[in-house]
């Protein structure tokens, strides 16, 4: 198998083409929203959402088969977004409280899944995704959910950035912190929903966190963060699928696709981090950087 086959030819096959299409949509949306997650320091809530979505996926699957995945996850994610927004505003961010909530929801999910006939198979699919077997009829809901998230963030972008930079100033100009937080958390929840059905609820976090972190390493220009994060995510998703295909078909080692994609994301981050360190973009004392500006 040639390099060209893995990078391009493989995607002529319908299941690979669908996987690439879904991953590209997801990567771009997660990249853009991930920048805000990074600027707001919301990694914690994002992590919480990825866990809370799991019982929704499980219940959706139990009630409606694979067609129930997205509705189930959407209900769970939006409920979790409400609860986590409230916990955060109430100042309840103790690790113990959150850990109890998250493990509780997770165990509910496992119990629901354990009632199904193919326990191990279903559990694996929910946790680690089924990107290579996304059914064609799921494309529209997946893209719809992703675009809805992007739209919500696009409309409130100016206000989200002001809130990230200057929370008091944001309230002073009359923006509702509650509304902005709900919109952002709901957008994150929608991405988690779309991603859970493809790369699995445990691996979504990489999609939301890594591209934003890469963009922060590469640039200090606000408006460049978003295209850089989206481009990184798209390229990493493509290379992830291509290398999974090359290893699975070319070398005959059957790797899970979602995990391979995440591995490529993390490898990309490591590469950018190493380059930034070598070029001296980061790692210098704060004072030195402040002084030269």
């Amino acid at each position: 198998m040639s390099l060209g086959d893995a990078l391009f030819g493989a995607f002529a096959m319908p299941f690979m083409g669908r996987a690439l299409f879904v991953m590209l949509v997801l990567a771009v949306v997660a990249g853009v929203i991930g920048v805000l997650v990074n600027l707001r320091g919301l990694e914690f809530i994002t992590d919480g959402l990825t866990h809370a979505v799991f019982p929704g996926l499980a219940i959706g699957l139990a009630l409606g088969g694979t067609a129930g995945l997205i509705p189930g996850a959407a209900v769970a994610a939006l409920a979790a977004a409400l609860v986590l927004t409230w916990l955060d505003r109430a100042g309840i961010t103790s690790d113990a409280a959150i850990a109890i909530v998250l493990t509780a929801t997770f165990s509910v999910g496992v119990i629901v899944v354990s009632r199904s006939d193919d326990y191990a198979g279903e559990l694996e699919a929910l946790l680690f995704g089924r990107v290579l077997t996304v059914p064609p009829e799921q494309l529209v809901p997946l893209v719809g959910v992703s675009l809805l998230a992007l739209l919500a963030i696009g409309i409130t972008m100016k206000q989200q950035l002001l809130r990230a930079f200057d929370p008091a100033g944001s309230r002073a100009v009359g923006d509702s912190a509650l509304v902005l937080d709900l919109v952002l958390n709901a957008a994150v929840a929608l991405v988690v929903v779309a991603a859970s059905a493809t790369i699995g609820s445990l691996l979504v976090l990489a999609l939301l966190i890594v591209p934003g972190a890469v963009a922060r390493l590469v640039t200090v220009h606000l408006w460049w963060l978003f295209p850089i994060a989206a481009a990184f995510a798209a390229i990493a998703a493509w290379l992830g699928l291509a290398s999974n295909y090359a290893i699975s078909i070319g070398a005959g080692v059957d790797l899970p696709a979602g995990a391979t994609i995440v591995a490529v994301f993390v490898a990309g981050y490591a590469l950018v981090l190493a380059t930034a360190l070598l070029l001296g973009l980061i790692g210098r004392p704060r004072a030195a950087r402040a002084g030269e500006a």
């Binding site: 100016k158 930079f165 402040a290």
Partner: peptide, 17 residues
């Protein structure tokens, strides 16, 4: 102080309302 934003962009926030 680590927030990636220029002076001009901070001043533009005054127009958001």
């Amino acid at each position: 102080p680590e927030f990636p934003i220029t002076l001009e962009q901070v001043v533009m926030q005054g127009r958001y309302r």
